[in-house]
């Protein structure tokens, strides 16, 4: 058994209570509970190996956070099984909780009223980290994340980015073997996003920890994850290589032209479909195999000042994936 995360036909329905307004109403609905079942995850299965970084993509409400919460033991599965490091997550055994970490970009984990250093000491006690390990890891994290200047400021006085870096440090002091990162870069500026990405990649290389990361910033996923899982409407619609996803879903490359003189779109569409045309810039979609040929024909025929051949932006590739839902098996085959 080499996979450290195994998810087997997970389904998760949320029970939403129909609450009546007011205290009496709450009392009434407490006694006679009326539920509505909201399916959030439908029959999702995958395995993750030690040391992998997996990007978990999907539009808002797709079920990413729900899946991560099941894997970290916060939620019971409605049906199906989760197995993480040989544990059943929702039993929340101390040994299990000590080997994972969950960072939620939208939620504060460090206490508002403490300084990061104090919060770290609390974590040391909670996770039974020895003094030697604590000092060593804190030293490393402080250096990698450049925490020195903020360690002794109360958390409520930190900027969002400073706080996020401290959250990451606090979440890693116990040396977890699996990192569940739910939108760790949300709201950060580009530099800070890069810093966090570099840090996660580094941590993965140094410790061999597995990382499962959700993000709406495609750059995070491109920079970090070779493998992506795409979920939509609670169903897994893709599991495979990021580059396979691009090859499979984006058979075309983008030919970017900078024209020397105005040219009509009709004249360009002779060579390949025009994706975009604005003044002197135009973008054509050319099938991968024929890009070079089409480019040279254009260069012979049309006054071109500059030309570039690019991949489709991943955002768009994934965005398209959300719009139609082919059966997962078919996509898996294609990915291999």
């Amino acid at each position: 058994m080499s996979a450290i995360i195994q998810l087997d036909h997970l389904c998760k329905d949320y029970e939403v209570h129909q609450k009546e307004p007011g205290l009496m109403g709450s009392l009434r609905s407490f006694v006679r509970r009326k539920y509505q079942l909201v399916p959030a995850v439908k029959d999702v299965s995958f395995e993750i190996e030690q040391g992998e970084i997996v990007g978990f993509l999907g539009p808002n409400g797709a079920g990413k956070t729900t899946t991560l919460k099941v894997l970290s033991g916060l939620l019971y599965p409605t049906s199906g099984h989760a197995r993480v490091l040989g544990f059943t997550p929702h039993e929340r055994k101390a040994d299990f909780l000590k080997s994972i970490t969950m960072v939620m970009g939208q939620k504060q984990q460090l206490a508002w009223d403490m300084t990061p250093s104090d919060s770290f000491l609390v974590n040391q006690a909670i996770y039974d980290v020895s003094d030697a390990d604590f000092r060593r890891r804190l030293g490393e994290l402080t250096e990698m994340l450049e925490l020195q200047p903020v360690l002794n400021k109360p958390v409520r006085k930190l900027s969002l980015g400073e706080r996020m870096k401290c959250e990451l440090a606090g979440a890693l002091l116990h040396g977890p073997k699996i990192l569940f990162l739910d939108e760790p870069t949300i709201g950060l500026d580009v530099n800070m996003q890069q810093a966090v990405r570099r840090f996660v990649a580094d941590y993965n290389v140094r410790t061999g920890a597995a990382v499962m990361l959700t993000s709406h910033y495609m750059a995070d996923v491109e920079a970090l994850a070779e493998r992506v899982l795409v979920i939509d409407g609670g169903q897994l619609v893709f599991d495979g290589n990021l580059s396979a996803l691009v090859a499979e879903r984006a058979p075309n490359k983008v030919l970017k032209l900078q024209l020397a003189h105005p040219v009509s779109p009709e004249r360009l569409s002779v060579f390949a479909p025009v994706r975009m045309m604005e003044g002197l810039t135009a973008e054509l979609l050319a099938p991968r195999g024929k890009v070079a040929e089409i480019a040279s024909r254009i260069l012979n025929d049309v006054p071109v000042a500059d030309i570039a051949i690019e991949d489709m932006p991943i955002e768009e590739v994934v965005g398209r994936l959300f719009q139609r839902k082919p059966p997962i098996e078919a996509v898996r085959e294609a990915a291999k």
């Binding site: 916060l74 929340r92 101390a94 969950m102 939620k107 504060q108 984990q109 909670i126």
Partner: peptide, 12 residues
């Protein structure tokens, strides 16, 4: 505030 998650993932 839904901050309970943070307490529940702690091994205490």
């Amino acid at each position: 505030r839904g901050e309970f998650d943070v307490l529940l993932v702690k091994p205490v």
